[in-house]
């Protein structure tokens, strides 16, 4: 059995490793917005959070989004607010980026670009994986 030992002296030691995995483009479906809201609300619980963007999820971070003519909310600026919520581990999968002809300069927020092998390794270390 995995015993969870509470360590009152060191709250960081109690933090669960939670990874959000985003694989859907924005606006076409509600997944991206839902994920963002869950990340923002979940940030209140001060866990060890990371957010991964792969497949079409990469498109959520594309610069210059303008939804004025669509009459839906452009939620992309909120990705830059993640830092103020102390959600600082943002990763993109290199293979997904290359497949879509994107580089980090095309994205509206600083991210760490990791290979699928590196992301697979991180996934293995998580307590919770949440998919959107």
């Amino acid at each position: 059995m995995n015993e969870i030992v509470e360590d009152a002296e060191n709250p960081e030691a109690n933090a669960k490793k939670i990874m959000y995995i985003n694989r859907r483009a924005p606006y076409g479906t509600i997944y991206a917005l839902e994920a963002l809201e869950v990340v923002l609300i979940g940030a209140m619980f001060e866990q060890d959070v990371s957010v991964v963007f792969m497949d079409d999820g990469i498109f959520q971070l594309k610069k210059n989004q303008d939804t004025l003519a669509l009459d839906v909310k452009n939620f992309s600026p909120a990705f830059r607010a993640l830092e103020t919520y102390e959600v600082e581990k943002l990763y993109v999968e290199k293979e997904s980026m290359q497949a879509r002809g994107l580089s980090c300069e095309d994205l509206l927020v600083p991210v760490l670009e990791l290979s699928s092998i590196e992301i697979a390794e991180l996934m293995e270390q998580q307590d919770v994986l949440l998919n959107f």
Binding site: N74, F75, P77, Y85
Partner: peptide, 18 residues
């Protein structure tokens, strides 16, 4: 100003800290 920049209202903990 926060809303202007990020298009969301900050949670109270974020507001307090900022």
């Amino acid at each position: 100003n926060y809303y202007e920049e990020y298009q969301i209202a900050p949670a109270v903990r974020v507001l307090t800290k900022a």
